[in-house]
């Protein structure tokens, strides 16, 4: 650990934290969006005539459930570019 300043150590830890923030926050929305897409496929196969409105609703729900992943992304961006800890 010689030759590493405190500043550099904080930057390295921020990079690791950013990766963890995005990676862990991507799990939930990934599962959720996949679930919504699967249910959308089921609904389309049951009622093919309602395809367009099902797809619109599905995309909207996926966009909303994506928000939690986006929070993780924002935290990662803050850690990488705003350097809140130094």
């Amino acid at each position: 650990m010689e030759g590493i300043t405190g500043q550099e150590f904080i930057y390295a830890c921020s990079a690791i934290g950013a990766g963890l923030a995005v990676g862990l926050a991507a799990i939930g929305p990934g599962i959720g969006e996949g679930f919504a897409a699967g249910k959308g496929v089921e609904a389309v196969s049951r009622q093919p005539e309602a395809r367009s409105s099902i797809i619109t609703t599905m995309l909207m729900g996926q966009g909303v459930s994506e928000t939690t992943g986006i929070y993780g992304l924002v935290i990662a961006l803050l850690l990488l570019f705003a350097h809140p800890f130094g």
Binding site: E66, I70, Y71, L73
Partner: peptide
């Protein structure tokens, strides 16, 4: 807050 960050995060993430 959630409205703001949803749009900001999506667009900035896409840009990056």
């Amino acid at each position: 807050v959630s409205l703001t960050f949803r749009m900001f995060g999506n667009l900035l993430g896409g840009l990056i």
